[in-house]
């Protein structure tokens, strides 16, 4: 199965999913960062030379740090996110899912020079195409990976208001994946057309057969979709 997910396992045996980022989102993040850097330089170029030679010197020093250490600074102190990466909701991690350290961040950013060769990140793009997790040369050497930053969204079931759908337990053991999908169905049911929703629900034959006695009495004609939602409510913990 083709996917862009890389699994990292913590020493405690917990599996973490890292979603790799290819050059589309990354180049945009790079563009935003370049704009910010360019803007700062432009501003300073306007202000600092007024101070004479000292201003020029200061400008060069700032330019040096902006050019080489701007990404390192942000990656170390802002959870692997430069402003551009933050906007694109991506972040740099070590391959094992932990935060980048000084050495790795310095390496991957110094090696931009090589990724840039022979012209405008051509080598970097080529390496990203060839490597499994979209890593450019700097990432390969520093053993880092760029991933989408995980966010925990408050998930709200669409049918929350319809409390009349009674939670009931499925009479078969469901795997984690199956549970997830049933919840996902409940979440997205309002995005489907009613026909499609019913059609999907009808597929899950074994879940529909054995309606609990109580429910049969209450609502004889409950649709397949409603029954799946009832199971979803049960899985949500509304028992």
């Amino acid at each position: 199965m083709l996917d862009t997910i890389k699994i990292a396992e913590t020493p405690e045996g917990v599996e973490l999913k890292l979603t790799c980022v290819s050059f589309f989102a990354r180049s945009l993040a790079w563009g935003i960062d370049a704009l910010i850097q360019g803007f700062i330089i432009l501003l300073l170029l306007f202000v600092l030379p007024q101070l004479g030679d000292f201003g020029t010197g200061l400008l060069l020093i700032i330019f040096f740090f902006l050019h080489w250490l701007y990404p390192v600074f942000f990656e170390i102190y802002f959870q692997g996110q430069t402003p551009g990466k933050k906007m694109m909701k991506i972040q740099v991690l070590l391959i094992d899912g932990t935060m980048v350290n000084w050495g790795a961040s310095l390496l991957r950013n110094l090696l931009r020079t090589v990724d840039f060769l022979p012209f405008f990140y051509a080598l970097g793009v080529a390496t990203m195409l060839m490597s499994k997790d979209f890593r450019r040369l700097g990432d390969l050497v520093a053993n880092t990976i760029v991933v989408y930053k995980r966010e925990l969204k408050e998930k709200v079931l669409q049918n929350q208001g319809e409390t009349e759908i009674k939670a009931y337990a499925p009479d078969m053991a469901l795997s984690a994946k199956e549970q997830q999908i049933i919840l996902s169905y409940a979440e997205r049911v309002n995005h489907f057309s009613p026909e499609r929703a019913e059609e999907l629900a009808l597929l899950a034959v074994p879940l529909l057969n054995d309606l609990p006695v109580s429910q049969q009495q209450e609502k004889i004609s409950s649709s397949a979709s409603e029954r799946i939602l009832g199971i979803a409510n049960y899985l949500m913990g509304r028992r």
Binding site: T10, P11, E12, V14, L16, I76, Y77, Q79, L93, L94, D96, G97, T98, M99, N101, W102, G103
Partner: peptide
């Protein structure tokens, strides 16, 4: 995990 196993204490 990211915090716990971070390698450098910045």
């Amino acid at each position: 995990h990211q915090v716990f196993y971070r390698q450098s204490h910045v």
